[in-house]
Structures are given as structure tokens and as C-alpha cells.
Design a protein around this nucleic acid. Structure first.
Lengths: 156, 156
DNA sequence: GCGCGATCGTTTGATATCCAACGATTGGAG
DNA sequence: CTCCAATCGTTGGATATCAAACGATCGCGC
């Protein structure tokens, strides 16, 4: 079925991906999943979850940011952030401050411990990025990054 | 903190991404999420879930494939496939056959309805891919795809 | 034959995520 | 002033995923 036979599977475990092999969407998912798994393993070594990283970085670079703005920037629903921030606050990495002129929003800031945790995560991320750079190649890195950003920005 | 101030936020809702802006891993996640959302919307129009697509395609291209092989090919744990296949079988899109020489494994095949559902999903995917192609540009498409495949293959 | 490690699909339990709805709060229209 | 729509963070319900453990089955060595 479905035309497009690139290669029938031969001996053991050879799979025919058919048209999937040429589809950006599928390969984007596979690459992201692999990269995430790899980073997950690195960050587990220092006892942090990978999902915390973008959150801590964005709070660090934008002290006083609100949860809603943070959720949009990190590409997740604001309700997903509630348990994450609860955890980060409980562990003393992030502080929530109420403002007086608008008592609905929190202003999020890193604590000293939060800065340290972020620094540790940054070292992991650097190693991870070096691995990715090695695979992508310095020559194509800039263009690759640029295309990723265009996809994120324009497909919505 | 964290050095690297590309731009302080000014008026409304300007967020400083700091070093995140240059990281492949983060941008890979954002691009994948956006692309998946877009495809999700398209496939919802025809009443299918986006996760079913790779599954149906791989079964179609590899009639008789087992669940374990299918799970590895589609990049998901085999236990994630159990409810998906239950649903596809219940709706009559996929048939499971027991083999006589190995009664542990199923052999998965598409039914006629499954072929039709896949054809509908394929039309969605083509539209989706055209949008991605427009963003990426024909000139860079091949290289982009190649890099995605290398990441998926080599980072693990 | 027999037994035991490996494999297949499922179950179970834990996360992470989305979406819709909610209560509290704000700010603007009248 | 007084409402009322909009916004903020949370809650509740649904789905998707993984990892570990399980029962059934296989196949190999002996």
C-alpha cells in the first residue's frame, strides 16, 4: 500500500519508513525526542529534571516576570507551570513576590540557591550543546537555528 | 545573572531569552511543539488524532509488523502503543493477527478502512508539509532533513 | 525432554501536558 | 461610583507518555 517502497525489510528488524522518511514533521519529532532524552540523562546526573531548565533561565533573565508571560515564553500552558513553580519554590530555588498594585500576579525571581542550580544546569546544557554542535557542524549551525526559529514563529 | 543580555524588555511583554536564544535544544523543542500543534489542528478537522498518523503509516508500509518493532520505529515506548492499537482495532482500522509459530507477537495490518483513514491523514500531512516547506525554503530542505536525521541517530 | 534466560504485549504507577472553568482582582465605560 | 469584561493563577478532567514489573511464550543448551 501507500506506494513509495524505499526498501523492503530484509534480515532482522529492518523497517520501511515509506513517505515518513521524507517528512519534516516526523523527523523533527524524532530529533527533538532524542535530544531531549540525551539532555534528560545529563541533567539527571546532577539531580535536576530537564523541564526545569528553561523555566529557571527565563526567570533569571527576566526577574519579576509573571507566570503567564513565563508560560508563553517557554511554550507551555500556564496551568502546567503551577506544579513546577510550586516545586521550585518549595525547594527554595525561586521566590514569588506579590505586588501591591496588582494582587493577581506573582513576580518571580531566583534565589541564591536558584542561581546555583541554574549554573549547574548550564554546565550540563553546555555539554549537551557541544554534542549537538558536533553533529550539526559549525558551518550549518547558524542556518539550522534560524530555520528552527522560523518554524516556531511562523507555523502557528 | 547568567551574563548575556541581548535586550532588556521594554514596553509590554518583551522577554529576554538570554542564552536560551542560541541553544539548539530549546529551539528544537519550540519548533517541534509548534509544528505538532499545527498538524494537530489539521488532523482534528478530519476527526483523527495526530499521534495515529505515524502508527498507521508504519503499519501500512510494513504489513505484519510487531508492536515492539513498531514502537522502536515510531520512537515511543511499546507500552504507549497498547491503548493506541486498542483504539485502532476497536475502530476497525487495524487488524491484529496471531501467528502460529510465535504466539507472543501480533502481526499488525491495515484494514480497508485503515487504508482510507491513512489516505485522509496523508492529505492533511501533505498540506502540513507544504507549509513547512514554504517556511524552510526548497534550497535548505534537504540539508535540514539530513541534520534532523543525524541528531535522531547519533545523539542517543 | 527440561529448564532458564530472553522476548512479547500488558498492567501499573508516576509525570507532564493540555483545555475549560473557576474565584479573585483589575480597570475602564457609563 | 458601579458594573462588567478582561486578566491572573489555580483546579479538575482528560490524554499521552515513560519506566518497571508481570505472565505467557519461545528457543537454546544440555
Amino acid at each position: 500500500m501507500a506506494g513509495a517502497n524505499t526498501k523492503a525489510r530484509s534480515g532482522r528488524e529492518r523497517v520501511n519508513y515509506g513517505p515518513l522518511a521524507q517528512w519534516i514533521g516526523f523527523n523533527l519529532r524524532m530529533a527533538q525526542e532524542s535530544a531531549f532524552q540525551a539532555f534528560s540523562k545529563l541533567s539527571k546526573e546532577i539531580g535536576e529534571r530537564p523541564g526545569r531548565f528553561a523555566t529557571l533561565t527565563l526567570i533569571g533573565c527576566n526577574p519579576g516576570i509573571s507566570q503567564t508571560v513565563l508560560s508563553r515564553a517557554s511554550g507551555r500552558d500556564k496551568s502546567s507551570l503551577t506544579p513546577v513553580l510550586e516545586d521550585l519554590v518549595r525547594r527554595g530555588l525561586v521566590a514569588r513576590k506579590r505586588t501591591d498594585h496588582d494582587r493577581r500576579t506573582y513576580r518571580l525571581v531566583l534565589t541564591a540557591d536558584g542561581e546555583q542550580a541554574l549554573a549547574r544546569l548550564n554546565r550540563c546544557a553546555k555539554r549537551h550543546e557541544r554534542n549537538l554542535d558536533r553533529i550539526i557542524g559549525a558551518r550549518d549551525r547558524k542556518k539550522f537555528l534560524q530555520i528552527l526559529k522560523r518554524i516556531a514563529a511562523e507555523i502557528a
